[in-house]
Design a binder for these strands. Structure first.
Lengths: 219, 219
DNA sequence: TACAGTAATCGACAAACTGTTGAATTTCCA
DNA sequence: TGGAAATTCAACAGTTTGTCGATTACTGTA
């Protein structure tokens, strides 16, 4: 276990993922089998319960082959996680483009924001991995990463200028509050099997921005 | 590694924690040393990075002694976690007693809810453990447990009757939204070193119930 | 088709950690 | 002080890890 040595792969694959860009079909086959075995085992026993040997057995891969692709299972997990986060960065422009006024316009028209629909579509696409990794035996650190990559930026862009320019302690909690709230919605949607359609979820997400428990006092 | 065997402790300690009720000072000393070593190591290397041997070395305890108190480090972690959750259940009555009307009354009087202050006081008391366990390398499953033990109940009691009696999908997301939001606030407070006083936090928590980004459109 | 390159397989290895055991030692308290 | 109980200590088998070298199988190309 020489932690300082750099990892040397015999294959020159760039991402370490089951990317379709792999020239050699052997690599693609191995990567795909490893990913599927990893997700199913992650779902069953949680990350720490996974053994490299068991993973390879399920993937019908020799244990030595695993080490041709990943330094260890932590690297494997983070590779997959980073792919998701990189994908989510593609929503960056759409997210920061959301102003509160535009949001209100869509809400009045009772139409879901297109980029929100696309976001939930993408999350559904990655549902099996996300369900496993966001679960109780998944990876503790991924929730916050997801929150920072999506939810926080979303809230920041919707915050009105008054709050954006006054970084008081309260505003920081304000952002943490709503960012965590949306992570909670996403997590619940994924954990409960993504019953609702992406359009429904987009609508729910928008509606939650205009309701709060305090105003219910008027009812 | 015979997982099916029941754990037999040579000491008849009941909680496994560093409780002051331990008659034998040897047990109390060992439990205290183990807990302190555990928290500091949890902070430094994360739960999975902890080795029983290293833990005992830091606690100045023989490795065999560890197994007189805990089956394994997972049991140790859960013992400590369950202590916190049990303590938080003492707030149960205070939580469910919070009605929206009373909350509004306190808010108008600009006074923090006493039970909220007590809650943050207790969290600060357990700050070192919570900081370690809620951190990125802590325990993924504890956040949701904390959320369910405190935040969800809090929101449920504040929800007005209209929502309480209509468990539509939206209401479930509504609860998940605000429960996660408050967990986020608590987590941020702990992660940033609990700068604000318990009174400040109670006020912030109350204020967040009466503000939402959507209403800012009127400003 | 044959060949060179490279990925996958296989067996073996030292190292680390785990959880247990039995005997010796120390500490406690009645 | 003496018995009970907690701690110490050394040793143990069993897993898992990450690495290595030699061999086999596959792939794309000349």
């Amino acid at each position: 276990m020489t932690a300082t040595l750099e990892h040397i792969t015999t294959c020159d694959c760039e991402t370490g993922a089951a990317s379709a860009a792999s020239q050699d079909p052997r690599i693609a086959r191995t990567q795909l089998a490893l990913r599927e075995a990893f997700v199913s085992l992650l779902e069953e026993k949680g990350f720490e319960g996974i053994t490299v040997g068991e993973l390879c057995a399920r993937a019908n891969i020799n244990r030595g082959t695993f080490y041709n692709h990943f330094r260890d299972k932590e690297t494997m997990l983070h590779t997959y996680e980073d792919e998701i986060l990189a994908d989510l960065n593609r929503f960056q422009k759409a997210i920061t483009g959301v102003g509160l006024r535009e949001l209100v316009r869509f809400r009045i028209a009772k139409r879901p924001l297109p980029f929100l629909v696309e976001l939930f579509d993408y999350l559904r696409e990655q549902g099996s991995f996300l369900h496993a990794v966001l679960g109780p035996k998944g990876d503790a650190s991924f929730g916050p990463k997801l929150r920072d990559a999506v939810c926080s930026k979303l809230i920041m862009s919707v915050l009105n200028e008054h709050y954006q320019n006054n970084p008081t302690p309260f505003v920081n909690y304000y952002v943490a509050f709503y960012a965590s709230a949306y992570l909670g919605v996403i997590t619940r949607w994924i954990e409960t099997g993504m019953q609702e359609s992406s359009e429904e979820m987009a609508r729910i997400a928008m509606r939650l921005l205009f309701i709060n428990p305090g105003e219910a006092i008027t009812l």
